[in-house]
């Protein structure tokens, strides 16, 4: 990966910090977030690695990772982080960047009717807020 000053301190990184209210460089990559993440097993990039990609200014890799959509905002990471970085908020910021560009992860009109029937409203409202 090619690193440049522009990339490392890009507009994108500042935007993620602004939306999340968190300091990306506060993280010292101990991986405690990943170690306790309930969704880690199904993520292709562990949560701490997504944060590392942000520290390195790798906008496109971070945004194309499924990890940000698999984060369930359970706050296990944030409640144990030794550096007071709330990774849940950073994941939300990454989703928000995409959603504000109209890049929905789930299209509400294409959800299967049997799922709509079975799912609690809480999941639909919550899920669609996170995904569309």
């Amino acid at each position: 990966m090619q690193l440049t000053a522009d990339k490392v301190r890009s507009e994108f990184v500042f935007r993620v910090e602004e939306i999340s209210g968190e300091k990306i460089h506060g993280c010292y990559q101990c991986g405690k977030c990943s170690a306790g993440c309930p969704m880690a097993e199904v993520m292709e990039y562990l949560p701490h690695r997504v944060l590392r990609l942000l520290q390195l200014g790798q906008e496109s890799v971070a945004l194309s990772s499924r990890t940000i959509w698999l984060c369930a905002a359970c706050h296990t990471c944030a409640s144990r982080c030794p550096r007071s970085v709330d990774l849940s908020r950073i994941m939300e910021a990454l989703r928000t960047v995409l959603l504000r560009e109209g890049k929905d992860f789930v299209n509400p009109t294409r959800l299967p009717p049997e799922l709509l029937e079975a799912m609690p409203q809480q999941a639909l409202v919550g899920g669609l807020r996170k995904y569309s």
Partner: peptide, 12 residues
Amino acid sequence: VWGTDTLSCENV
């Protein structure tokens, strides 16, 4: 023990 090995990027 649930930990992480950040060198391999794998949970342990």
